[in-house]
Design a protein around this nucleic acid. Structure first.
Length: 560
RNA sequence: UGGGGUAUAGCCAAGUGGUAAGGCACCGGUUUCUGGUACCGGUAUUCCCAGGUUCGAAUCCUGGUACCCCAGCCA
C-alpha cells in the first residue's frame, strides 16, 4: 500500500501485538472469508482492510477463502467479482485462493472422528421437530430420541447419507453437546446436512455438506490462521468454534475475535437487501453507482485509496454504530482534490453572446490541468463569441452577497476575461434565453482597474463544446436508517430522485477521456467516466460527489 | 423471562487511577481566478444513571437503565 498506514489503534491490533510479543504466535495469519452469494459491499471493505491490514502491518499473511458450504445459494459469478474487488482495493492474498470446499474430505473425516468419539450422531428428526426439541431462549431443549445411537450405527448411517441414499432433510449429523445449554448454539448443532445439489467447486462429488460452524474453525486451523476475525453476531458461536477445535486433532489453534459490522447512513448493507434491489430492477445491477457495493462505488468514481482511508477513519470496535455517509464523501473528496485533473463542464446551459468578440474570433488559452500540480500539465481552452455558462450563475434579481452574473454586473470567466452583463434576451414565453455580455480585454491574468470582481464562473465555448451525458447520483434512500423500522419495508424509503440524467456541454479536453478517468468539473463536483458506457467523443460521466457548496447551504438555511 | 454483548459531543472514536486525543459534521475568520482547497480559531467542567472506594475515577466496586445479537438442515 502506498498510503502511510497511520492506522489508529484498535482492540484487535492490540491483541495481535500482544500475542506476538508474548510469543503466543510467531506470525499473524488472518483470512477474509466471504460466502460467494452476492457482491462485496462497503461493510466487507471494513473487514478486508482489517484482515489484510493486520497481515501487512505485522508482516504476516492473509488468505482469501470462500466459505462455500452452501451450494444452493452460491455462484461462480460472485467468486469472480469478489476476487476482482479485493484486488482492486489493493490487497493481495497469500498464495492461491482457498475454498472451504477444498477441505470437504478432511471435514468429513473429522465428522467421523467425532462420531467414533461419541461426540456426534445421526438424527432422524425433521427440521420442524429439531426446532421443537431445541427449546426456546428461556426453556432448555430435550434430547432427540436418536441421540444415543451407537458409534457404529452412526458411522454406517452417515456413510449412507454421504452415498446419497437419503432424501434431503431426512437425516442430519449433529454434534452431541448439551441440549440444556443457555447458549442455543450448543444444543446439539447440525453439522452436516444432505443436499442433492451440484456445487460450483466440487461438482457432484458430495451429497452432504458441512455447516458453517463445522467448517469455519477447522478451515482456519488447516490454514494456520492465528486470528479469526468476524462480526459480532458470531460471538455466541465462539464456544462452538472452540469446542470443535478442542475435540478434533486439528493442526492449529486459531482464536476468534469479533468486531461490530458497519452501518452507513442513507444506505443498507445487507446482502439480502442489496440483492432485492438488483432483482427487482430498482437499480441497474450490483455495480449500479448508487449501490454501496465495492463494484458500485468503483463505478461511481471512488478510488481504492479513498475506501481504505474511510475504513481507517471509522475505526474498529465492538459498539454498534451508524457512520455518517459524510465520512465517505470526505474520504473521496480529499483524494480527488489532490489527484483529479480539472475541467469545465456546463450542466444547465445558458447561452451568452460576447458582443465585442467578432464572429470569427477564436482565442486559445493554455490552462493548468490542476491548480497545484504542474505534473498534470496543461490543456487548451478555446474562447469564441458564443459561450455556455450555467443557468445557476445568473440571476435577474440577485439576493445580497450573490456575486455571480446579474444585469449590469461583472464576473470572471474562469481562466479567461471578466465580462459584464449588458442585456437579457427573452424568448416568446418570457423566459431568459440568452445574455449579451461584453468582455473587458484588460483582465486576462490580472484584476480590473479600480474595482474588484469577486465572482468566477465556469464556461465553455459553444463552437467547441462537446456533448456530455452526466448522471447525477444522490442517495438511494431518503432516510438515515432505511431498515431501522421493523414494520416498514425499507423500500418505502427509496429516493425517487437518486438518478438525474443531464445533457451537458463539456470543454474540448473532455472529448477523449478513457473509461474510469476522474475529473473535477470546477465549481461543480467530482465526476468519473463510466467504465461501461463511455465512448470516444461521447463521454458519460457519473457524479461521484459534489463539491461542498457553502453558498447553497447558506441559501437553504435562509430559505427554511 | 435464558444466554451473549455495548454505552465517551450531532456522528465515528482515543483513553486502561492523575484531571477528556483525533476525524466527520457544524459555527466564525484569513487566503483564493473554483462560494472549492488550504490555513487559523470555536464547539463535552464531563464520559448512560445512582451510590460507593480513593488525595484523585470515564477508568475500580455495587445496584440500576437503555440498546444490539441468538430459538436456519443460512453464513
Amino acid at each position: 500500500m502506498s498510503d502511510e498506514s497511520t492506522s489508529a489503534p484498535n482492540f484487535i491490533r492490540t491483541q495481535v501485538r500482544e500475542d506476538l510479543e508474548a510469543g503466543r504466535n510467531e506470525t499473524v495469519v488472518t483470512r477474509f472469508p466471504p460466502e460467494p452469494n452476492g457482491f462485496l459491499h462497503i461493510g466487507h471493505a471494513k473487514s478486508i482492510c482489517l484482515n489484510f491490514g493486520l497481515a501487512e502491518q505485522f508482516g504476516g499473511r492473509c488468505n482469501l477463502r470462500f466459505d462455500d458450504t452452501n451450494p444452493v445459494s452460491e455462484e461462480q459469478v460472485y467468486i469472480d467479482s469478489i476476487r476482482e474487488d479485493v484486488t482492486w482495493l489493493g490487497f493481495q492474498w497469500a498464495g492461491e485462493v482457498r475454498f472451504a470446499s477444498n477441505y470437504f474430505a478432511q471435514l468429513h473425516d473429522w465428522a467421523c472422528h467425532l462420531i467414533r468419539q461419541g461426540d456426534a450422531y445421526v438424527d432422524d428428526l425433521n427440521a420442524e421437530e429439531i426446532r421443537e426439541y431445541r427449546g426456546t431462549l428461556t426453556e432448555p431443549g430435550r434430547p432427540s430420541p436418536w441421540r444415543d445411537r451407537s458409534p457404529e450405527e452412526n458411522l454406517a448411517l452417515f456413510e449412507r447419507m454421504r452415498n446419497g441414499e437419503f432424501a434431503e432433510g431426512e437425516k442430519v449429523l449433529r454434534a452431541k453437546i448439551d441440549m440444556a445449554s443457555p447458549n442455543i448454539n450448543l444444543r446439539d448443532p447440525v453439522i452436516y446436512r444432505i443436499r442433492h445439489a451440484s456445487h460450483h467447486q466440487s461438482g457432484e462429488q458430495w451429497k452432504i455438506y458441512p455447516s458453517y460452524d463445522f467448517a469455519h474453525g477447522q478451515s482456519d486451523a488447516l490454514e494456520g490462521v492465528t486470528h479469526s476475525i468476524c462480526t459480532l453476531e458470531f460471538e455466541d458461536h465462539r464456544p462452538l468454534y472452540d469446542w470443535f477445535l478442542e475435540h478434533l486433532p486439528v493442526p492449529g489453534r486459531p482464536r476468534q475475535y469479533e468486531f461490530a459490522r458497519l452501518n452507513l447512513s442513507y444506505t443498507v448493507t445487507s446482502k439480502r437487501k442489496l440483492r432485492m434491489l438488483v432483482e427487482r430492477g430498482i437499480v441497474d445491477g450490483w455495480d449500479d453507482p448508487r449501490m454501496p457495493t465495492i463494484a458500485g462505488l468503483r463505478r461511481r468514481g471512488y478510488t481504492p485509496a479513498s475506501i481504505r482511508h474511510f475504513c481507517d477513519m471509522i475505526g474498529v470496535t465492538r459498539a454498534d454504530s451508524l457512520v455518517d455517509i459524510q465520512m465517505l464523501y470526505h474520504a473521496i473528496r480529499s483524494d480527488l482534490e489532490d489527484n483529479a485533473p480539472r475541467a469545465m463542464c456546463v450542466l444547465k446551459p445558458l447561452k451568452v453572446v460576447l458582443t465585442n468578440v467578432p464572429d470569427e474570433h477564436e482565442e486559445v488559452f493554455e490552462v493548468a490541468g490542476h491548480p497545484a500540480r504542474s505534473d498534470m500539465g496543461t490543456r487548451q481552452l478555446p474562447l469564441t463569441r458564443e459561450i455556455w455558462i450555467d443557468t445557476d450563475d445568473f440571476m435577474e434579481e440577485p439576493p445580497k452577497k450573490y456575486f455571480r452574473l446579474a444585469p449590469g454586473r461583472e464576473v470572471r470567466l474562469r481562466n479567461a476575461y471578466v465580462i459584464r452583463c449588458d442585456e437579457v434576451i427573452r424568448d416568446a414565453q418570457g423566459e431568459v434565453s440568452e445574455l449579451h455580455c461584453s468582455v473587458d480585454f484588460e483582465t486576462l491574468g490580472k484584476n480590473p482597474e479600480g474595482r474588484k470582481v469577486k465572482g468566477v464562473i465556469h464556461w465553455v465555448s459553444a463552437a467547441h463544446a462537446i456533448p456530455v451525458e452526466v448522471r447525477n447520483y444522490d442517495n438511494l434512500f431518503q432516510v438515515e436508517q432505511p431498515d431501522r423500522d421493523r414494520d416498514v419495508d425499507f423500500l418505502e424509503h427509496l429516493n425517487e430522485g437518486s438518478l438525474e440524467v443531464v445533457h451537458a456541454w463539456g470543454e474540448p479536453a473532455l472529448a477523449d477521456v478513457s473509461p474510469e478517468s476522474r475529473y473535477q468539473f470546477e465549481r461543480v463536483g467530482y465526476f468519473c467516466a463510466d467504465r461501461h458506457d463511455t465512448r470516444p467523443e461521447r463521454p458519460v460521466f457519473n457524479r461521484t460527489v459534489s463539491l461542498k457548496d457553502s453558498w447553497a447551504k447558506a441559501q437553504k438555511r435562509q430559505g427554511s
